[in-house]
């Protein structure tokens, strides 16, 4: 299959159209939604960059935290983690749990809201 233009190039082209052409011609509510649309495309571009590696790391951490079968998918692993947390089998005192959740959430925010005030400021 072809990738000229690539996903990234196509999204960047649409984002540039919104920013440089559409937005200056819109007013009020429509201009607001255009800005949101541009931000969503920026999120997608960050996700294409960050997610593959971050999700792979997340899967490895989850496997070792849950001592799980290597064949489990990331959504199966997260579902399992949720069950164990809900039942109280895992909690704040579980070694490695907070570190895992924090690393995962920071990676998620580096896609979703990279300037959020709750992120560590180092």
């Amino acid at each position: 299959m072809h990738d000229a233009p690539s996903q990234k190039e196509m999204i960047a082209a649409v984002k540039a159209f919104i920013d440089d052409t559409a937005m200056p011609n819109l007013k009020g509510h429509a201009a607001f939604h255009a800005r949101v649309a541009s931000n969503v495309l920026a999120t997608v571009l960050r996700e294409l960059e960050i997610r593959p590696l971050a999700e792979n790391d997340e899967r490895e951490r989850l496997s070792s935290l849950l001592n799980a079968d290597q064949n489990m998918t990331i959504s199966e692993l997260n579902l399992k983690l949720c069950e164990l947390l809900r039942q109280g089998e895992l909690g704040l005192d579980t070694p490695g749990l907070l570190e895992h959740l924090k690393t995962t959430t920071i990676a998620q925010l580096s896609i979703d809201q990279p300037n959020y005030s709750g992120l560590p400021s180092d």
Partner: peptide, 15 residues
């Protein structure tokens, strides 16, 4: 698009 985008603010409350 605004309602879609707000789903990507949930992670703010997670941190």
């Amino acid at each position: 698009v605004e309602r879609a985008a707000i789903g990507r603010r949930v992670s703010e409350t997670e941190i």
